[in-house]
């Protein structure tokens, strides 16, 4: 299971990477916005995408839309980890096909819960 972590702040990427390692996900790679993330995704081999929303270049919501619009990537589960907390934003992300939405600041337990839920659903399908 290879996970791509997308956030413009390296500290946050490190935090998420460490938490994922604690949850048993050792194979992670990083990008600092949608524009750098897309080529990594398109190169293949990414099984799960964790992305921030507010980033320079290409924002997380646009990355999500681009992933869903690309037939090779459309089925990758996407977890959004973001400080964006307006209702319209959460609804837009849901409509764009996000699989989970975690608001910052978050706890290790919340991240685990959302990831477990995403994989439970995928396994059930």
């Amino acid at each position: 299971m290879k996970i791509l972590i997308v956030d413009d702040f390296s500290t946050m990427r490190r935090i998420i990477k460490n938490l994922l390692r604690d949850l048993g996900f050792n194979n992670t790679t990083e990008a600092d916005d949608g524009l750098t993330a897309l080529p990594i995704l398109q190169a293949g081999g990414i099984d799960f995408l964790v992305t921030d929303w507010n980033m320079p270049g290409m924002q997380g919501i646009d990355l999500l839309k681009a992933v869903r619009a690309d037939e090779n990537l459309a089925n990758i589960p996407v977890l959004m980890v973001t400080a964006e907390t307006k209702r319209e934003q959460i609804i837009t992300a849901a409509q764009a096909g996000v699989n989970g939405y975690v608001v910052k600041p978050f706890t290790a337990a919340t991240l685990k819960e959302k990831i477990d839920k995403i994989f439970e659903r995928i396994d059930a399908e």
Partner: peptide, 16 residues
């Protein structure tokens, strides 16, 4: 240690 690590998320939040 995990909690200390999570607390460093302030850098992202305040950076924005």
């Amino acid at each position: 240690l995990s909690e200390m690590m999570l607390a460093q998320g302030f850098q992202d939040l305040t950076g924005q």
